[in-house]
Design a binder for these strands. Structure first.
Lengths: 296, 296
DNA sequence: TCAATAGTGTCTTTGAGACAATATGAC
DNA sequence: GTCATATTGTCTCAAAGACACTATTGA
C-alpha cells in the first residue's frame, strides 16, 4: 500500500492540487457549563442553582468588547479534539473535564475577517474545582447564567406533512450584562422526511454565532441528561441526593418528585458515612458516584 | 456595532493575522446508508435485508484503487452542511434525503497529502429512489453490506473506577471486496468522569480513516432509531409493517416480536387501502408514514 | 391439505409518576 | 414545638416484553 502510493509520484502531486484551493481557518469554540449557587437571601434555605456558561470579553476586533465563547484556532499538529482539550486547560486550568464535540459551524460570513469554520465543544465542570482567575491573560472571563425557554409554539398541517415552529428565548446574564437572543426552531415533516433547523430571529449582543452554539449545547445537555450520567460531571466528589436532584431540575427546567428521582438514580450512586451538618435542618447523607461495572 | 468595528482598522488588521497561520483543507465525507434486499434463493420467502453503505473506488492517489466514502472539499461560498447537500446530490442525484452531521475528524496525518480536517455526515436514502449510475463520473460506486458486531467484552475494576473494553468487527462486503476492520471501544469510569473512545486495532482496506467514520455512523443510527423516526427515511412511500420491522431488525441486529413492534409504531403510520399481492401467502396491508402533528 | 406470512389478544413485568407519611437537626 | 429539609413506602397507570392464537393466500 505504501509502496504503490509512492510509485507514481506524478499522480500524487496532481491530487496535491487540493492545497492550492482556498482554505479556511478552523477554530474550536468551547461551551463550558457549570452549576453555580444563586446568592440566597433567606438564611437556612437551600440555595437555588443556575446553569452557567463561561464567556470572555473580546479584547480585539471583530466584536471588540463583546462577550464570546472561549476558543482558538486548531494547530496543524493537533486534532480538533486535542485543540479543545488544550483550550479548556488554558482557560480553566482543568486537565480532565468532560468534553464532547457538538457541531461544526461554517456559514460563509459567520466571521467578518475571513473564512472560519468552527467546531463547537461542550465541557462540563464542577464549579468547586475552579477558581476563575478573572483576567487570567488580560481578558475578562465571567460566568453567565443561561436560561432557554420556549415562548411560543405553532403547529400547521401542510399538503403532505406538517410544520412545527417553536420560538425560544435564550437569556444570558451576569452582573455586567444581560442579553437575550430569540431563536426559532422549525421542524418540518414532508412525506417520510423530517428536518429540523434553528434560526436566529433577534440576535443578542454576543459575538459571532455564539448564541446559537450555546443554544445548541443547552439542547444537547437537556436531551442527554436523561439517559446518560452527564450530570455527575457537574457535581463535586461528595454530594447529597438533593443537590444532584437540583442539578437535574436546573438543566431540565422543571421540578421532579423526590421519591421518584431517588429510585431512578439509586444504582448510580453509593452512600458514604458522611453527613452534612449545621444547616438549620436535618442533616443529609453524602453520596459518591458509583464506580461499579454498569455503563450507560 | 458595525461602525465600531470599522473604526480602528489597525486592530482589525492585527486580528486578521489569523489568516497567516497555516490552514487546513476542510472536506465532507458522506456515510450514505440504504437498506437493500439480499438475493433470496428460496422462492416465496420474504427477502432478507442488509444495511448498506455507498463507497467509491478512488481513481487517484493517495489510496489509489482503494474504496472510500464519497465526499469532497468545502468551498468558501458554502457551509459544511451545504457542501454535504451538494456532494449527496452529485453522488446520488437526490436533492432532499435525510442528512445529519456526525463528527469532525482531524487527527494529524489522517491524510498523507496535507492537513485535512473532515466533517462526516450520515445520509439515509430509500433504495427504491436511486439508480446507482455506476461510473457516473468515471468512478466505480458500489453498495457495501455493513455489519458491525461485538466480538469481545472485558470489564475491569480500577482503583477509582472501572474500564469496559469492547472489541468490534466491522465487516464491509460487496461482490468485489470483503474487508474487515477491528475496532476497540474503551469506556473508562474514573471518579465522577466517564470517557469513551474508539480506536482501530486492525485497519481494513478502506482509504483514510473511513472505516472509523462508518463505525461511528452505524452506532449513531442504532442509537437514534429507537427514539426517533429515522427509519422512515429508509422506506419507500408505501410499505408493509413487516418491511418496516425488518428495517428496525436489520439496523439493531436483533429480532423483534411482531405484536409489540406494531404497538410501538402504530401512531407513526397510517393505513392505506392497498395490499400486496401475488407473494404466495396472505396479502399484507400497505402503510404510509403518519403526517400528523406528533413530533419525535 | 401445507407452507409461509399477516394480524390480534392478553398476561406479566417493569418503570414512571403522584402522593402520603414519618424522621431529624437547629433554633 | 416549629421550620425546613431528609427519607421511605405505596398506589396507579402506561409501556415493554413474552407468548399464544387466528386468518389468508398460492400451490
Amino acid at each position: 500500500m505504501q509502496s504503490s502510493r509512492e510509485q507514481t509520484e506524478a499522480e500524487f502531486l496532481k491530487s496535491y492540487d487540493a492545497s492550492r484551493y482556498e482554505r479556511p481557518s478552523v477554530a474550536v469554540d468551547m461551551v463550558i457549563f457549570t452549576i453555580l449557587d444563586r446568592p440566597q437571601p433567606n438564611y437556612r434555605k437551600l440555595p437555588e442553582k443556575d446553569l452557567c456558561v463561561l464567556l470572555i470579553k473580546r479584547g480585539g476586533h471583530p466584536f471588540k468588547d463583546h462577550w464570546a465563547l472561549p476558543g482558538g484556532f486548531v494547530q496543524p499538529t493537533e486534532s480538533p479534539d486535542q485543540a479543545a482539550v488544550r483550550e479548556l486547560a488554558e482557560e480553566t486550568g482543568l486537565e480532565n473535564a468532560y468534553l464532547e464535540q457538538l457541531y461544526t459551524w461554517g456559514d460563509p460570513g459567520r466571521d467578518p475577517r475571513t473564512w472560519v469554520i468552527s467546531c463547537s465543544y461542550m465541557a462540563l465542570i464542577d464549579a468547586s474545582r475552579i477558581k476563575l482567575a478573572a483576567g487570567d491573560d488580560a481578558v475578562d472571563a465571567r460566568w453567565f447564567r443561561v436560561s432557554k425557554k420556549l415562548k411560543q409554539e405553532k403547529r400547521k398541517l401542510t399538503r403532505n406533512g406538517s410544520v412545527l415552529k417553536q420560538k425560544y428565548s435564550l437569556l444570558l446574564s451576569s452582573e455586567e450584562l444581560t442579553t437575550e437572543t430569540q431563536l426559532e426552531k422549525t421542524i418540518t415533516k414532508h412525506g417520510r422526511r423530517q428536518t429540523e433547523e434553528e434560526q436566529i430571529l433577534v440576535p443578542g449582543e454576543l459575538a459571532f454565532d455564539h448564541a446559537r452554539m450555546i443554544s445548541y449545547a443547552v439542547d444537547r445537555l437537556r436531551n442527554k441528561i436523561d439517559y446518560t450520567d452527564l450530570a455527575f460531571n457537574l457535581m463535586p466528589e461528595y454530594f447529597t441526593l438533593t443537590q444532584l436532584q437540583q442539578v437535574y431540575e436546573t438543566i431540565l427546567d422543571c421540578e421532579l418528585l423526590k421519591a421518584n428521582f431517588r429510585r431512578k438514580i439509586e444504582n448510580k450512586v453509593v452512600e458514604t458515612d458522611s453527613f452534612t451538618a449545621g444547616d438549620g435542618y436535618r442533616p443529609s447523607q453524602l453520596f459518591k458516584r458509583s464506580v461499579g461495572l454498569q455503563y450507560s
